[in-house]
């Protein structure tokens, strides 16, 4: 009898070798315990947790599973530089794990598991203008990228940040932005949906800042992170502006449990967001029916 063999069709699936490289002999389910060194509230519902050291080595763009002991874990991209001494996470309180995290105090123990996913391809960004677009708590992973770029700022032509929040009080890293704005080779523009009397900058959703794009759209990478609705409209605008699809880097949101491409929770189409992402290009996701959930 002739068996019907499945057709091997690998024209679209991401390169399997990209799924390799995590096996370092460590139990991938184990979280490394580490104390919280400092807690800095950024907005009414967003807080930065500074850990007492760097429990895992990571590159900008990779994420980790952060554990609240006995409660559970959730995936976050660190907001600190990969070159920093202390790992930081800037987190918005939204669910069960983050609520438990917000109840912790300085000195309490958390767990870190990772790093997972692929980093930003920084070597491809060399010599180029980098156009970063963020919204809300989406600034957290972008800060990690920004700090990694600053570490070798001479390698890049110019770094642009376009960031939006709901109100001036919802702007993450308001304490740090003035210093960043002074750096040569950095151009930061902010907007809020609703301003107040003290607000002197743009008012409107983040796409308002994307009306005039001062970079060479044909060659520059653009990196976007924010709530799904913002991702959707920002991506639309960036495509219209002429950015190459493979140069539009999007931080995808997905439910993640294991973090390393086995549990299947994060899968969007055939893509494992945890392993092939969490940063994916528009080229990667444009065929998925509804990539922004």
């Amino acid at each position: 009898m002739e068996s019907v063999n499945p057709v091997k069709n690998s024209d679209k699936v991401l390169d399997q070798s990209q799924r390799k490289g995590l096996s370092n002999g460590v139990n991938p389910y184990y979280s490394i315990p580490i104390k919280i060194k400092e807690i800095i509230p950024e907005t009414s519902n967003i807080t930065t947790f500074i850990l007492d050291g760097m429990p895992i080595k990571f590159e900008a763009g990779q994420f980790a599973e952060l554990t609240v002991p006995g409660v559970g874990e959730a995936p976050f991209t660190p907001s600190s530089s990969p070159y920093a001494k202390n790992m930081e996470f800037t987190i918005m309180q939204v669910g069960r794990v983050t609520t438990a995290l917000f109840n912790l105090k300085e000195g309490d123990l958390v767990g870190v598991r990772g790093p997972f996913g692929k980093p930003y391809p920084l070597k491809d960004f060399k010599g180029k203008e980098i156009y970063i677009v963020g919204g809300g708590v989406g600034f957290a992973p972008l800060r990690s990228l920004f700090l990694a770029l600053l570490h070798n700022i001479k390698d890049y032509k110019k770094i642009y940040i376009r960031y939006g929040a709901r109100t001036p009080d919802d702007i993450v890293y308001r304490r740090l932005i003035p210093d960043w704005q002074k750096i040569n080779g950095v151009d930061i523009a902010l907007t809020v949906d609703v301003g107040d009397e003290s607000w002197k900058e743009t008012v409107g959703v983040v796409t308002v800042l994307l009306e005039q794009i001062p970079v060479n759209v044909k060659s520059s990478p653009t990196i976007v992170c924010g709530p799904p609705i913002m991702l959707k409209f920002a991506t639309k605008r960036l495509i219209e502006a002429g950015f190459t699809h493979s140069n539009i880097y999007l931080s995808m949101e997905s439910n993640m449990s294991c973090g390393f491409g086995k549990c299947n929770h994060c899968r969007l189409g055939e893509i494992y967001v945890c392993k092939d992402g969490p940063v994916l290009t528009w080229e990667n996701v444009k065929d998925i029916e509804e990539p922004f959930i």
């Binding site: 389910y29 979280s31 002991p69 449990s257 294991c258 549990c263 299947n264 929770h265």
Partner: peptide, 28 residues
């Protein structure tokens, strides 16, 4: 498919892997 959940055991905790199924409404 599986799901990881953490359970308190005194001062410590255990990470437990249980079978999951993609038909569950809350799966993704």
């Amino acid at each position: 498919c599986f799901l990881l959940s953490d359970y308190k055991r005194g001062k410590n905790f255990e990470r437990v892997r249980t079978w999951d199924a993609c038909y569950y409404a809350a799966y993704a």
